[in-house]
Design a protein around this nucleic acid. Structure first.
Lengths: 336, 336
DNA sequence: ATTCCCCATGATAGCGCTAACATTCGGACA
DNA sequence: TGTCCGAATGTTAGCGCTATCATGGGGAAT
């Protein structure tokens, strides 16, 4: 009575059963129940069976909040990404949680939306849940954020970059060199008028810098840079703002594909090989989609899931190398 | 000494400072510090300033684990999705966390990988963290999972479907009717030989059923169904297994785009309008990419982020309608 | 003055669990 | 036969915080 949810024969009362409720029912002390849950080998088979029966009958679900407080272990990791939607970071989250979940860790996910203030708030929110480690994309944008992490005394893994003075561990690649690689490729294939399109987030900017520096070092005219909104639609119209440009490095594959849609409308896209393209296009991220479209998209291939898995490993193992360069690969297809 | 991390002038000792450490430093009782953190209006401005100064000096970060245990409020929600990578569910996670994070809720993310056993394990793991609510894609695959959720006595939101006997709340759309809509569209445009490609997960299967039922009801030959791996690459070769088919409904846009890549290789794709396509293709999800490729992809448009935001709302408000149909829309472009 | 009330603060008792240290008991071993 | 040891279980004391119920000390109202 009083509850509209009673439905099984096993009494489902008002409140969630606790360890000691199970203990009472099984006729043991609560620490024994605790052991059945966490260290079953320490409990005699018969006792264990009795306790397990009581747990089943009561529908006992352990309270990890209390367990975490008592043991000072939350078995959780905080994950901070700029955004999870339509993005390569989803692969990283997938990779790291595939590694961590089987080990009993939970992932607490937060998004900064490329906003420094929100990033700081999210970092503080994550830390107040006392995760065993923090994995984030990039580095904290503010000194406050950095200080927060440095004082947290847990493993911190920065990803998707190789910061010079990391807080703790790093799993990423060299965005600057990625920019250099694309510029070199364009120049080797006779392109003269380069441009970069994409966001102005730290990683995009680093790609731009490498791209620009290499172009200048090779004596080309200064490449152009077009900063776009985060969604790819803006990139469709981008070529109108880039007259005379014959090679474009897009900060990610979505922008690259959007840009190609614009080229197509302008009659500047061929189904032939890269050499036939009036405007060469290279993206970054190696989306599956880029392989499927026509002309297929050349891209800097980065293994987002490997970054995630490596980051997870870095949170688990304290010793060993704390700075892992996963590298990247220039994959040439038909777009440039 | 003994620590290699001391660096600020403010003493950063071995362990994280607690409420009572702050209290001692500020010369107040710990409950007052607690009030400064949670209910600042109850504290006199001068006292508050003194406490805030002490918090800053000690680098105090509240321990929400302890707070959650004491107050029986974790301010977290559990989110269970099949997968977060390369998928439309990322939009849903984004949508719900955009709504929940500003309110102080954390998102605990788990992935089932379309595996019933793993789903059950993840549900149990989530529940043991005592979230205020659970939001999941679809319904639990097993009775065990359903029972777990029914006994949890927290809001449960099932999404991306409209189950007949929901556990609690629902934010989704009618996958069966989506299948019907695509079949109707194909038939109205004179297509005779229909096929469905995609996964055999519950939602995909429901789409298939609607698609099949409507085709049969209209007197067409039984449509074919090709079950594919989750990645789109498999769909590239799919058309070879579908001789004579002139209209294909792909369970998601990625498969649709992959299938179109196969059609292109086979010379069965035109840059013209839908009527000119030897094989009409309709996807589901309305990926931005589908709008950008050529021919542009017709699709069932579903607002993944709206599903997420709606689900978040349903976890917060107990009263009101608990079954929200977000609908879908058949968006016709050039592919079919 | 006295009463009342509200504002600011404090003392106390847990939340549900686990770490750390008993305790008990039966058998192996000398 | 006594000693020792390990296996199985229990006792105790918190983890860091918050809910709840005091407490004291001004005004405002009478």
């Amino acid at each position: 009575m009083g509850s509209e949810l009673t439905e099984t024969n096993t009494s489902s009362d008002e409140v969630a059963p606790t360890l000691s409720a199970v203990a009472k029912r099984a006729g043991v002390s609560s620490i024994t129940v605790s052991r059945v849950v966490r260290l079953p080998d320490l409990v005699a088979p018969e006792t264990r069976a009795r306790v397990e029966k009581a747990m089943r009958e009561l529908g006992y679900v352990p309270n990890l909040v209390a367990g975490a407080l008592a043991s000072a272990k939350t078995n959780s990791v905080g994950v901070l990404v700029p955004t999870i939607a339509n993005s390569i970071f989803a692969d990283t989250v997938q990779g790291l949680s595939d590694k961590l979940e089987p080990l009993g860790y939970s992932v607490i996910l937060a998004q900064s939306r490329y906003d420094a203030a929100r990033e700081d708030r999210m970092l503080a929110a994550l830390l107040s849940r006392r995760p065993e480690a923090i994995i984030m994309v990039g580095s904290p944008a503010t000194e406050d954020g950095k200080r927060l992490l440095r004082h947290a005394r847990i493993p911190i893994v920065e990803t998707w970059e190789l910061p010079i003075d990391p807080i703790d561990a790093v799993a990423g690649f060299d965005n600057y060199q990625a920019g250099v690689a694309v510029a070199r490729h364009f120049i080797e294939h006779g392109r003269q008028h380069l441009a970069f399109i994409g966001g102005d987030d730290p990683r995009g900017t680093r790609r731009w810098l490498g791209f620009q520096d290499h172009a200048l070092a090779c004596g080309l005219q200064p490449p152009r840079r077009l900063i776009l909104e985060r969604n790819a639609s803006g990139s469709v119209a981008a070529h109108a703002n880039l007259p005379g440009v014959d090679a474009v490095f897009a900060a990610n594959d979505a922008h690259a594909i959007g840009f190609m849609a614009g080229l197509r409308k302008a009659g500047l896209l061929r189904d032939g090989p890269a050499a036939a393209q009036p405007v060469a296009v290279v993206g970054l991220g190696d989306l599956e989609m880029g392989r499927l479209i026509s002309p297929s998209l050349s891209t800097i291939s980065v293994h987002g899931d490997a970054i995630g898995r490596t980051a997870a490993t870095l949170t688990l193992e304290r010793g060993g190398e704390r700075r892992i360069d996963l590298g990247f690969e220039l994959v040439l297809r038909d777009s440039g």
